[in-house]
Design a protein around this nucleic acid. Structure first.
Lengths: 220, 220
DNA sequence: TCATTTGTGAACGTCAACGTTTAGTATTAT
DNA sequence: ATAATACTAAACGTTGACGTTCACAAATGA
């Protein structure tokens, strides 16, 4: 929150300029990574801080010093995850010629991120655990799915204004398209292989979704 | 497995015709109901057998006598849930005039079931917990989503043959429609109210999904 | 009535995890 | 060198949950 950090080009810890031994930022990363894997894979309750510490190559006390308790660790992870998502979506909103290309672009970046981060487990976990951490969950959904929906809604509304599509209710249409994309992933996860699909497969999924969507919403 | 049960019209326990005190079948129901609520609401690990017993108005020992252990209880619940789902889908596949009415019919029954049973929590839980109970999860997915997909695929293929729609790959189209339906529910769950939507709202959701779907797949 | 089975309540042993404390080591600025 | 901070390993107290055991009550057929 305050502005007392200094930055270097690399991941190297910047000089803290004061006090004793500097905190090793890579440890924080390692902890969050291990927490992600644990929380994603086993769910919040089943995941144990002891195993997270071991897997991160870090003492248990370090985790408590930095994150307070288990809930605090979850909260930090949620915050990080939402932030990752936001930047990924920012990247996705780059220029493209046709509305079709724009949508494929957006969808591909989004779906790649979701698959890459095993995001569905996270989703699942948060839905269950949101009674325990309502604010964190809310913040995540706002930053994640909420932003996606807003961005996509804006894209569709603009396309409608240009006459590329015929969309009376852009938010609902955005939900439709998101559903088509996400549905693929759900099916994949339930029936299919647990391995994450190749970029080519993801692109096919996304393309198909856009195709169906545009057949339904194409301006005549 | 064996055929030594006798049946009456009601939920009343049939006469066991042998031995000492008859098992109270309503207790089994109460246990499964409580387990459903607990597993749905908190996830497998967080749910405690002690609380389930208390909530079911039953001794803890009774649960262990009937289900062996916690995993056994989950397995029984999964079995029951899959069976409920199958019968619900059977009901959904009744006759209707137009393809549109058929699809709305199917979707409405399906979505009503999903919402009514807070099925998404269950889904979420199973995805996380399937490492612990792969066979049970597989059986559930086959009986639930798998059956849905098969049934819907058949309906769409038949409609294609009659020339009502233009669908080259019926299974993919079925996934599209299921995605559109389920996506609504997901959004609802993430952003919206936690309360379950009214039948009218569900019907609106389903109708909209069918509408979009048919605009995309309508035979010209 | 008696044998048989279901079910209860309370207590028990065990274990895993949370979160804390302590004593000591590592790494930095002064 | 010294003070200050980060970090570790190991032990600790506590809690909650799993699953079991035991003595006893309840419900039924013979």
């Amino acid at each position: 929150m305050s502005a007392e950090n200094t930055y270097t080009a690399k991941t190297d810890t910047a000089a803290p300029a004061r006090a004793g031994r500097p905190t090793d930022e890579r440890k924080t990363e390692a902890i969050i990574d291990a927490a992600r894997e644990a929380f994603f894979g086993e769910g919040y309750s089943a995941a144990s801080i002891e195993r997270i510490a071991e897997h991160a190559g870090v003492s248990k006390v370090t985790i408590y010093k930095r994150f307070g308790d288990k809930a605090g660790l979850l909260e930090a992870l949620v915050r990080r995850q939402a932030q990752n998502m936001t930047t990924a979506i920012g990247d996705a909103n780059r220029a493209a010629e046709t509305i079709e290309a724009k949508l494929v672009n957006f969808g591909f970046t989004l779906m790649s991120f979701l698959f890459d981060e095993s995001h569905f487990h996270f989703d699942s976990m948060l839905i269950i655990e949101r009674e325990r951490q309502p604010e964190a969950a809310q913040r995540f959904f706002d930053a994640g799915p909420g932003t996606m929906r807003r961005e996509l809604t804006a894209i569709l509304a603009a396309a409608h204004k240009r006459g590329d599509v015929a969309i009376a209710k852009p938010q609902r249409a955005a939900e439709d398209l998101l559903s088509l994309w996400k549905g693929f992933a759900d099916m994949e996860l339930r029936f299919g292989v647990a391995e994450k699909p190749s970029p080519a497969q993801i692109k096919n999924h996304v393309r198909h979704g856009v195709e169906v969507f545009l057949r339904a919403y194409r301006a005549d």
